[in-house]
């Protein structure tokens, strides 16, 4: 699924690049940010709406770290034969516990081609979601829980 190219102007870039964190928690946060950008609050809200509708932004709001709420966030992979792809994909994507799902391919013919992240409110929820996918698909799920995090900072500047 390639995203449609969307024209973003300099202000959109400043919004995307400058708002990937530190959104203020105060009575009128959009007005505060708009002031910093030199635009009106209405303009900022309209631009955010447009960027979300065009899926240049997938979300705007708090990003929760479910592990800190007693939950779990686990990467998992499956080896899905091409003939079975749509059936298995439908089963995996339908689960609300699947936060994202990617098709991946390597040049070395790595058999693990479906990679998804399970986000659940409890550790037990991970096992239940895995069982649900395995029972529905008839294929094994390989969880890759993180043993140690060395670095995470998913902030990317606009290049489009």
């Amino acid at each position: 699924m390639r995203e449609p190219a969307l024209l973003v102007d300099a202000i959109d870039r400043a919004i995307i690049d400058g708002l990937q964190g530190d959104f203020p928690i105060c009575e009128r946060p959009y007005a505060e940010v708009a002031g910093r950008l030199g635009i009106s609050e209405e303009d900022l809200l309209a631009r955010l709406q447009r960027l979300l509708a065009a899926r240049v932004l997938t979300r705007f709001g708090p990003m929760f770290q479910v592990e800190r709420m007693g939950g779990a966030f686990v990467l998992a992979a499956m080896c899905v034969p091409d003939a079975d792809w749509q059936r298995v994909r439908a089963i995996v994507d339908a689960l609300p516990e699947v936060a994202h799902n990617y098709r991946r391919e390597s040049e070395r013919n790595c058999p693990f081609n479906m990679w998804f992240v399970l986000a659940t409110e409890s550790e037990a929820g991970i096992d239940a979601a895995i069982r649900c996918i395995e029972d529905g698909s008839g294929l094994p799920v390989f969880p890759f829980p993180k043993l140690k995090e060395y670095f995470v900072e998913m902030k990317l500047a606009v290049r489009a």
């Binding site: 973003v8 240049v56 990003m63 990317l156």
Partner: peptide
């Protein structure tokens, strides 16, 4: 407490040029 990692925009990295 880190329950919220950050508050802000989550870009679709494909749409902003990271294809």
């Amino acid at each position: 407490k880190g329950v919220i990692r950050r508050v802000g925009a989550v870009p679709n990295h494909y749409a902003i040029g990271y294809t």
